[in-house]
């Protein structure tokens, strides 16, 4: 019990440090936590915030859905079909660690300065880790399970749906969790590079008007949302973890 709450205690301690330091020393960009928390209660009531949240959630959701729909089959294909693996692996490995932020400016003239660009950014950030993890998962499926299915005359479709996909599920879910982390970064980076949509516009506004309470309030809200999202996927991931080890 104590161990589970230790991180929380740490964060409370840091919050206190923040409050005390910001109270005693005047730092222009870092108002005391208490006034930031007041900022949080104000920001969440703003119509502009709710619209931005909706817009961001939509872009993130669509981008993530695309990443899963494209990434899982692609990864499974790479896992079972050597030529596909040899053709795609290079690119997946390049894009999983390349500074894709540099691509966002190219998306803007291509897809317009709006949602589509943000969705594409989320997709670009998120899809590769799903591809590589799905590939990894399929490769970890015990080959004798495939033999077993074949001795029972399983069709290719049955092998795919009943053996490969459930067998790869632990890695696929890990991939999706990591993709959520990347997708959240993608949605925020896309929005602040464009600076005209969603939270990007709000961040820009608060910076221009130097309303640091609201700026930090928005940061905290986004961090909390990101954390909850990642934990949510982690929860599902742990439910299938029991068989990840016993393969």
């Amino acid at each position: 019990m104590a161990r589970r709450f230790a991180p929380l205690l740490t964060l409370i301690a840091w919050a206190l440090v923040w409050e005390v330091v910001a109270q005693s020393v005047e730092i222009s960009v870092l108002p005391p936590l208490s006034s930031v928390l007041v900022g949080v209660t104000e920001v969440v009531q703003l119509k502009s915030f709710r619209l931005a949240l909706l817009e961001t959630g939509r872009a993130f959701g669509i981008g993530m859905a695309l990443s899963v729909v494209v990434g899982v089959p692609l990864g499974v294909l790479m896992g079972v079909f050597r030529p596909a693996d040899r053709l795609l692996n290079v690119w997946a490995n390049v894009f999983i660690s390349a500074p894709l932020t540099a691509v966002v400016p190219a998306l803007m003239p291509l897809l317009g300065i709006g949602q589509t660009t943000v969705i594409a950014t989320v997709f670009l950030f998120a899809v590769w880790v799903i591809v590589l993890d799905a590939r990894e998962g399929v490769r970890k499926v015990n080959p004798s399970l495939i033999d077993m299915a074949r001795t029972h005359h399983a069709s290719r479709l049955a092998i795919f749906t009943k053996i490969l996909v459930p067998g790869a599920l632990p890695e696929v879910l890990t991939g999706i969790r990591l993709a959520v982390v990347r997708g959240v970064k993608g949605v925020i980076i896309g929005q602040i590079v464009i600076a005209l949509v969603g939270f990007g516009a709000l961040f820009d506004l608060y910076l221009q008007t130097f309303s640091m309470e609201r700026f930090w309030a928005l940061v905290i809200i986004i961090f909390v949302l990101a954390f909850l999202l990642v934990e949510g996927v982690g929860l599902i991931e742990r439910r299938v973890a029991f068989y990840a080890k016993s393969r």
Binding site: P7, L11, V187, I188, I192, I222, F223, A226, F227
Partner: peptide, 17 residues
């Protein structure tokens, strides 16, 4: 804990600061 948060959260947001 703060390092995990920095790694997980979109810290890009505070770069303009």
């Amino acid at each position: 804990p703060p390092l995990v948060i920095m790694q997980t959260a979109p810290v890009a947001a505070i770069i303009p600061l």
